[in-house]
Design a protein around this nucleic acid. Structure first.
Lengths: 233, 233
DNA sequence: AGTTTTCAGATCGTACATTATTTGTCAATG
DNA sequence: CATTGACAAATAATGTACGATCTGAAAACT
């Protein structure tokens, strides 16, 4: 019946109900879309999803509406919901926005940074270098902590929220692929360079570095996506 | 019962049901929030809203979820929805984002603009000058057409969508207040300056002008909001 | 072959049940 | 006598079930 290859199948559990895994319906749906487990433009039928999630239709409908508000699904009246394609263009688009926003956030951070924060940043950076990409998962967490520390105290909550949303999406996508060695060394270099600029109170320099950082990260993800698409269409 | 002063009251109509006015529940709610007809942080009870809208609770719930996705309401589990305050800070936040995004969009537009488009822009500008702020409504529409023409062909749909959303919010807010004379002349000047830069193929200049344009617009709205807040708290 | 009809499938709206939170009362205690 | 704590009732959010309405496409008909 369903065109979706059974993901989150309720039948995977021991007996019947229980164990929603703690993840909300919204999150499961969102992850399926971001991770590309549902095909682009695929139709999302509430009854189907309700079965798969082990609930009734109402929670699914509300989750879909929320996802529509965030732009992950496209809904047309009386015609249901379709998943917005998360393709290279999409990544390029949000990266381009980040290239504009993150330098601004960084610039402000340089102006208000304290010694304690610099120390903490250096400590995180040391952990990252010590780990040396041995575990993608913990590396991502450390990287997130690094940037989050810089942006968290910013007054523009709207911009920071936007950054967080974009960041989550990009992170989810990049989880599909391994990070190339050259990109790894670039990341380390850029972080070090950024720290130097912050310590030297060079706001423009820090903004430039972050700009390059984001652009490089985006370019890397897009290349990997293109590669994956051409090897396994 | 409700703390919301009856807006969209169903009893305002001739007899009983009919006439939802064409506006969806989502739009009505969204407008009430943006226009400040519901107080900041006000609690939104689904049963209340359902009564007011003349429908049952389910459509209201879905509208709220969509609004949450867009960031207009804040929902906490088992505790319902509250309206996000649309205050001066909020306006400042989205304006700051626009100050970053719009110059980038404009810069690209200068690179691909055709003679026909320049002509159309000049025609719109002529209409704007001819109208000279006699009617706020049609002025807003013309201004929207002016900027929309510049951004509509841009490849980064995500950025343009973001701009449109922000633009609608700002437009709805500024509708509450009259435009000051000094701001009016600034708007005309900036548009003229922008056209000159575009015709001269001066991308950097155009970006600078748009930056000033957005910043000035934001500053104007914020000042008006502050004023209104202090005169009628 | 092209148009109309019919019908299954899916969305949308309403009503109801369940569960969690808030509120209000009253007794026990310092 | 005031304050606090526990318990009960009300209030509101969350979830389930079902009927109404719309869409899309196959089947019947001219």
């Amino acid at each position: 019946m369903s065109t979706i290859t059974s993901i989150h199948d309720a039948s995977s559990e021991g007996d019947d109900s229980m164990e929603d895994g703690g993840a909300s319906i919204y999150e499961r749906l969102r992850d399926d879309i971001i991770h590309g487990r549902v095909k682009a433009n695929e139709r999302l039928k509430v009854a189907d999803l309700a079965n798969r999630m082990g609930t009734s239709t109402n929670p699914v409908r509300e989750a879909l509406q929320q996802l529509r508000g965030e732009g992950f699904v496209i809904m047309t009246p009386n015609r249901g919901a379709r998943v917005r394609p998360i393709d290279e263009d999409f990544v390029r688009d949000i990266c381009e926005i980040e290239v504009l926003i993150e330098p601004a956030l960084t610039r402000w951070f340089v102006g208000i940074v304290t010694n304690e924060e610099i120390e903490e940043l250096e400590q995180i950076q040391a952990e990252i270098e010590g780990l040396n990409f041995a575990d993608e998962m913990t590396h991502s967490n450390l990287d997130l902590r690094f940037h989050k520390l810089m942006y968290d105290r910013h007054y523009n909550r709207h911009a920071v929220d936007l950054w967080m949303r974009h960041r989550h999406i990009l992170w989810a996508i990049s989880r599909r692929f391994p990070t190339s060695l050259s990109r790894q060394s670039n990341v380390l270099d850029e972080h070090r360079e950024l720290l130097d600029c912050i310590k030297a109170q060079d706001a423009d320099g820090a903004a430039r570095v972050i700009g390059r950082h984001v652009e490089g990260s985006g370019r890397h993800i897009i290349e990997r996506m293109r590669l994956a698409r051409h090897t396994a269409p």
